[in-house]
Design a protein around this nucleic acid. Structure first.
Lengths: 107, 107
DNA sequence: TCTTTAAATCAAGATATATTGATATGTTTA
DNA sequence: TAAACATATCAATATATCTTGATTTAAAGA
């Protein structure tokens, strides 16, 4: 029950659904590029990423001070069904703003 | 997005997960039997049933003053996957206490 | 080692959701 | 039509979650 409710709680927020859709669309992305793309303040984004990670949806790859998040694979059945549902939602996704490649992550 | 989040929000509560499992296990049940089975105060149960119904998980059949709730069929893909997941959770379900058949719903 | 940078965590306030007890609605029966 | 009953809704409080800004951690480079 705990694990199921944790997955559901993670899905129960529009911001996190957008993040899942974003990562599903653009693939592995570093935190600062997500910050720039979503124009979201760092602590807020970080918190949502943690919740999604702790609920088993995301994987983090750390390189130095940078953190690259991606959809965890494989997802179990329920989580991948949720993702499939999210994939078909009519959402306006922000463009991928890869500031990391140009000016670095000075935000 | 709205509809998806409404489904997810409905699932995001242990009591409601129990109710879904209960109705999936025992089939259509009247409110007062659920009250008796869960030993739950009436307004609380009624609220949770409404949330599940409004989220598309339940169907209500009214006969006079009585209301019989059941899992709505057919469920769409995401909702039925959620139900399938709930079906496999390790839950201690209360026994079905059919007070409606013996003393009526005097609670 | 000191500074800079990226990310995570913390604390406070704002917002949303759950619970309870009281009241309202609507149907049946006396 | 009045009373009893099953269920729904409301109002107040309690609890949980989200947002923000500040602080902390940890890695890299000067």
């Amino acid at each position: 029950m705990e694990v199921f409710l944790k997955s559901v709680a993670a899905l129960n927020d529009e911001t996190r659904v957008l993040i899942l859709r974003f990562l599903d669309t653009y693939g592995q992305t570093c935190v600062c590029d997500m910050q720039a793309s979503f124009e979201m303040i760092q602590s807020r984004l970080s918190r949502h990423l943690k919740i999604l990670k702790d609920a088993g949806f995301l994987w983090v790859d750390r390189k130095g001070t940078w953190a690259y998040y991606s959809i965890r694979k494989p997802l179990d059945r329920f989580r991948s069904e949720a993702l499939e549902e999210i994939r078909h939602l009519d959402i306006v996704l922000p463009a991928l703003n890869k500031i990391s490649q140009t000016q670095g992550c000075k935000l």
